Amino acid sequence: MIVLLPPSETKRDGGDGPPLHLDSLSSPELGAVRAALVDELVDLAADRPAARRALGISASQDSEIDRNAALRSAPTMPAVERYTGVLYDALDIESLSGAAASRARSRLAVGSALFGLVRAGDAVPAYRLSAGSKLPSGATLAARWRPVLEPVLAKLAQDELVVDLRSGSYAALGRLPGAVDVDVVAEHADGRRTVVSHFNKAHKGRLARVLASSRAEPGDAAAVATLARRAGMRVERTGNELIVVVQA
């Protein structure tokens, strides 16, 4: 089983790994697009107003541009440790130990606007690029990634069940038919259900932790739902679609 996570805009600084070496990342088929995007971000960083427009940030966030300027020389750390925020707080990978930690690091992958797909242990620097960023080259990131990323994802899914926790904009970079998709809804006292926004990430992080660290090896959506329920989550299933229901 592979648990496919979204990235986060927030990332830890620093790291004790060597500078980025694209050839060492998993899925080498993605290397050409990765290299082109790294080059473009480094060049773009020299023009701060243009970089702000492309990345959708303000002058108060110029440190993000500095990160991109240093992409080739900055230290790295494992991808699963680089990303931060609500989902990754709930996942809490660093609190796992022993066999559970090993299982989690072998099962977790991240969809990335810059790298396409990375596994948990891939060494990456801090950077700023979101799925919706509009780089000066003109083509959308989805248009650049889909032709190369979708075959990689399809190959991944041939051998393993994939639980896709990516948000819509990141799923659009590389579609994956047949994956187990997960949504989170809030149920109100009157029975109404609404889409959860902020807390969606926390519940997906909690589910990712359950699935990634479990000794079980689910083979389909029904087995994934069973694991989640055993962990105390309320889950409904229709085919390959899972809905995590939380109280509003």
Rank of each mutant, 00 (worst) to 15 (best):
E160T: 13
S169R: 13
V162L: 05
E150R: 06
G174L: 09
E160Q: 15
L173E: 03
V162P: 03
A157P: 02
R166Y: 01
Q158W: 02
S169W: 00
L173N: 04
R175Y: 04
A157E: 05
V162I: 13
R175T: 15
Y170S: 07
P177Q: 14
P147R: 04
D164V: 06
G168H: 06
A131K: 03
D164N: 14
T140S: 15
S169K: 13
R128G: 05
S167T: 14
R146E: 13
L149T: 04
R128N: 12
G132P: 03
A154D: 10
K155M: 00
L156D: 00
P136W: 08
L176G: 11
A142L: 05
R175C: 07
Q158V: 11
A157S: 15
A131L: 02
S167P: 07
E160H: 14
G138P: 07
P147L: 12
D164Q: 08
A126C: 03
K134S: 12
V162Y: 02
D159P: 00
G138K: 08
G174Y: 08
P147M: 11
G138I: 05
Y170T: 11
D181A: 14
L165E: 07
V182N: 12
P147H: 06
A126I: 01
A139D: 10
V148Q: 04
P125E: 13
L165G: 04
L149C: 05
W145E: 06
G132R: 14
R146P: 03
V180G: 01
L141I: 12
V162K: 05
R146I: 07
W145F: 13
V162A: 03
G178T: 09
L149I: 08
R146G: 06
S130R: 15
P125C: 09
A179K: 12
V182A: 08
E160R: 15
A171I: 12
L153S: 03
R144F: 08
A157Y: 01
L165P: 07
K134W: 01
R128W: 10
R144V: 11
S130Y: 01
A154K: 08
L161V: 10
A142Y: 02
G174K: 08
G178L: 10
G132V: 13
A131H: 04
A139I: 00
A171L: 12
V148R: 07
D164P: 07
R128Q: 09
A179H: 10
V180D: 00
L135E: 00
A154W: 00
Y127A: 06
G168Y: 03
L135Q: 02
A157Q: 14
W145Q: 10
S167M: 11
D164W: 09
R146Q: 15
Y127F: 14
E150H: 02
Y170K: 09
R146H: 02
V148P: 00
G138Y: 09
L135K: 03
D164I: 03
S130M: 11
L135I: 01
R128V: 13
V148F: 00
R166W: 04
A157K: 10
K155D: 14
G174N: 06
K155T: 12
S167K: 11
A171E: 14
A131E: 01
P125K: 15
Y127C: 06
W145K: 05
A171S: 15
A142W: 01
P147T: 07
Q158M: 09
L161Q: 11
S133D: 03
L173R: 06
V163W: 03
R166H: 02
Y170H: 07
V180P: 01
T140Y: 02
V180E: 00
V152F: 03
L135R: 02
R166V: 06
A172M: 05
L129G: 04
G168N: 12
Y170E: 09
